[in-house]
């Protein structure tokens, strides 16, 4: 057979399972999604860009995207540290902290939103001492940042942890025996191995933060042009029955999400290609060792 859709298999149930899957996906995803595109395409290009680039929308992009970027960066640095501590060290209560890392996944966003807002409000447990130091968190952009950091926290930790767990200790020990300091070992041997996973986690945290709604709107203050995030702007437009405006901004956000997803997928492909050619596996660490060795011996 020149073209075969499916490889031959004796396992039963292909038709039924694939058929039901496609039917379900069509009803739940494809048809509504196409309705959205149809609605969006009823706008002319000029109208579309006018809606997407209105000053209020642009202010919201600036807040959402820059806030998400900073939050994802915070999560990148602390996430790698937390993953390291959870994998390499032992301390009382480690199991509990390990499970708690997933809390932002498990906790509903509205619950997270009101508790963060209360925690950082002017008479909250943290808000009061911070206010005494002159730092306003609730109803400011800083509050938005705190909420975005909260919901992105698990991503980097959970992508880096498995990689750290699978790392071979031999290479660190070999580096140490060659005279590398711990810092050199970390920068040359360990970091290249965990960087792809860490960057994947960064991308995931960023994508989630850009679209986040429930956790942010309670602490944000939601003032147009100042503390209004893009998802909130979409909701407000819908409440005003400005379907065209809401759709335009949503499509723009979708396009950015897909671009991020594409970038992430390319990163994954690059990462697995590196693994196949042995980059993040022993020979990569070996190459890191070689560079140390070359520096040491001058050979």
């Amino acid at each position: 057979m020149a073209f075969s859709f499916k490889r031959r298999s004796v396992v039963p149930g292909f038709g039924l399972s694939l058929g039901f899957t496609v039917l379900y996906l069509s009803l739940v995803v494809l048809i509504p999604l196409s309705a959205a595109f149809l609605k969006a395409s009823s706008l002319s290009w000029h109208e579309f860009w006018q809606l997407v680039l209105s000053p209020r929308a642009v202010a919201s992009y600036q807040l959402s995207f820059s806030g998400s970027l900073i939050a994802a960066t915070i999560n990148l640095s602390f996430g790698v540290l937390v993953a390291w501590v959870l994998v390499r060290y032992d301390f009382p209560g480690k199991g509990i902290f390990d499970s708690m890392v997933d809390l932002p996944f498990a906790l509903p966003t509205a619950v997270a939103g009101i508790s963060l807002a209360t925690l950082y409000s002017p008479n909250g447990w943290l808000g009061r001492p911070l206010l005494a130091m002159g730092i306003h968190v609730a109803y400011t952009r800083l509050g938005v940042l705190v909420a975005l950091t909260f919901i992105g926290l698990p991503f980097v930790v959970r992508t880096v942890q498995p990689v750290l767990q699978d790392l071979d200790r031999e290479f660190e020990e070999a580096a140490a025996s060659l005279g590398a300091s711990r810092w050199q070992t970390f920068m040359r041997v360990l970091l290249p191995s965990i960087l792809p996973a860490a960057l994947t986690g960064f991308g995931l945290a960023f994508a989630r933060a850009v679209g986040e709604y429930g956790s942010v709107i309670f602490i944000a203050g939601n003032m147009p042009m100042r503390t209004e995030i893009t998802p909130l702007l979409i909701v407000i437009k819908l409440q005003e029955f400005d379907y065209a405006g809401a759709t335009a901004i949503a499509m723009f956000m979708l396009a950015c999400s897909f671009a991020t997803l594409l970038g992430l997928n390319l990163l994954q492909v690059w990462n697995s290609r590196r693994e196949r050619t042995g980059f993040s596996s022993p020979s990569a660490q070996g190459r890191g060792l070689q560079s140390l060795f070359a520096e040491e011996g001058g050979r």
């Binding site: 679209g211 809401a246 956000m253 897909f258 991020t260």
Partner: peptide, 25 residues
Amino acid sequence: LIDLPFSVSPVVSGLIYVLMFGLQG
């Protein structure tokens, strides 16, 4: 396609259904 809900904002997920079934949908 199965991963789609993870990559779109929940607000956009709701919007999709409003555009399909809403008054002006």
